[in-house]
Amino acid sequence: MKTVTIKDESLTGQLISEIEVALENERITVKELITARVYAEVEAYNQKLPEYFNGLVQPNDAEKTLNGYKLKQKRTIDPEKQVYIAWDAFQKNGYFVLVDDEQAESLEQEVLISDSTSISFVKLTPLVGG
C-alpha cells in the first residue's frame, strides 16, 4: 500500500484542497487513480454526512454552491456512481490530471507513483453563456 497526497488546484496553480489516498500499487492507470480518489472522498463524506460534499464531481440530486455540493436530502453517496461521473468528466475535459506536472492524456495511461510524485487535479470552470 502506498499513500499519496492529491491536490486540487485552480488554473493559476492556487491550492484549493488536498486529500490523502491509499494506492495498492506503484504503477497504476489514471483510471485507477481517479477511482481511488473518488472512493476516498466519498468514504470521508459518508462517515460524517456534513452539509456539503466537496468532491471531484457533482453528485446526482445536488446543487453547486460556493461551499461545495449541497445534497437536497442528507444521504450517503454511492461511490460507484461518482466514479462513473468522474471518468466521464475526465474524458469530456471537465478537469485535468497532472502527474509530476505532465498532463494525463487518457484513462488507460499508466503512471508510476513514488514518494516524490506530485499529483494535481485541475477543475475547469465552464464559461457563462459559452
Rank of each mutant, 00 (worst) to 15 (best):
S114H: 00
I16R: 14
Y95V: 12
Q109C: 05
V21R: 04
L71M: 08
V99G: 08
A86V: 04
L112M: 13
E26H: 03
K2P: 01
K81E: 05
V38D: 11
D100C: 07
F121S: 01
L71S: 06
Q82L: 09
Q109D: 07
Q73G: 10
I85G: 03
K48L: 01
I77Y: 05
Y39V: 03
F90E: 11
I119Y: 06
T12V: 04
D101E: 02
K48R: 02
L11R: 10
G68V: 02
V83C: 04
Q91N: 15
E51M: 12
I34T: 11
L124C: 10
E43W: 09
A22R: 15
A44R: 13
Y95G: 14
E26S: 08
E80V: 07
T117K: 03
Q73R: 15
K74W: 00
L127K: 14
E20V: 11
N46Q: 07
D8E: 14
N93C: 02
G130L: 09
S120E: 08
S118N: 13
L112P: 04
Y95D: 11
L98C: 00
A104N: 01
L56P: 11
E24K: 12
E80P: 00
Y84A: 15
I19L: 06
V57T: 10
V4T: 12
K48C: 02
L98G: 00
M1P: 14
A36Q: 02
E102L: 13
T29Y: 04
D115C: 13
K2I: 03
I77E: 01
F90P: 09
A89T: 09
S116W: 09
Y95E: 15
E9M: 06
A89H: 05
L112R: 12
S116M: 09
N67E: 07
D61C: 01
R37G: 07
Q14C: 04
K92L: 10
T35I: 09
T12M: 08
I28C: 08
T65C: 02
V99L: 13
R37H: 13
T65M: 04
K123H: 15
D88R: 10
Q14W: 00
P50W: 01
A62Q: 03
G130N: 11
K70L: 10
I85M: 00
R27G: 00
G13N: 08
A86K: 02
P59H: 07
N60T: 15
S114Y: 01
L11D: 12
L66G: 13
Q103T: 10
F121Y: 13
Q103A: 15
Q14H: 01
E80H: 06
D8R: 10
V83I: 12
F53Q: 03
E63S: 10
E26K: 01
L23W: 02
L107A: 04
L107V: 06
E9T: 08
E43S: 15
T76G: 03
A40L: 02
Q103C: 13
E105T: 13
Q109H: 05
